[in-house]
Amino acid sequence: MIRLIELIGRFVEILWSTLMSFARELGKILLLLCATMKQLILPPFELKNTFKQIIEVGIKSLPVVVITAVFTGMVLALQSYTGFKRFNAEVLVGTVVALSITRELGPVLTGLIVAGRAGAAMAAELGTMRVTEQIDALETLATNPVKYLIVPRFIAGVIMLPSLTIVADFVGIIGGYFVGVTVLGANSSVYWKRTWDYLEITDIYNGLIKACFFGASIAIISCYKGFYTEGGAEGVGKATTGAVVLSSMTILISDYFLSAWLFK
């Protein structure tokens, strides 16, 4: 009994200190966000770097996003078909796929993929630059590293996440359609009609707002982790994993609250 209380005590202690360090970290991330916003509006603009990051975040994540979205659409159609058949609602498969993808899975899966790919790359790159003093070198060359390194990544995140989400929405719905019509034998025009009948423009639109928010979170969190890396190569490794874990958690947690707020 005493051991149990002790154990719970330890657990609460760890939970508390984790929460506190999370709060401190959140504060620092918000400070970095403010600095980024300030540098974002002040000229000169880093067009070349921004373009490079847009390619990096957007184009290079595209294949993974497409494949993930197609299969998600496919499995959604399959699962909802077998489930809905139990109460004779097979006709709604198209609707379910369209709503789930645009409102939820499109933005969230795209976010998680970009967090794992581009977020990790951002943290690793900035972390390496920090530990090899390249960020200090930028400073000696009278270049603000927030402007030069972070602003382009932030812009790329905010622009490219919604763009990728549009693609994911589209191919996800196509994937569902493909399974619905060819594998499950739904009538093509009925399926198609059901897909669009109950889909409202706000479904897509709100999904994209979520994506924007995810893009901003991934970029600022990953840049934060990289920018403040300490402790050599090991530190870069920690920063990279830390960036992926924190961005993914932020996406999943904020998704709930954003959904509650957006889809009233």
Binding site: T132, D136, A137
Partner: peptide, 9 residues
């Protein structure tokens, strides 16, 4: 810089 700190990109 002691370790040169060149921009490796």
């Amino acid at each position: 810089f002691q370790m040169a700190a060149l921009f490796d990109s």
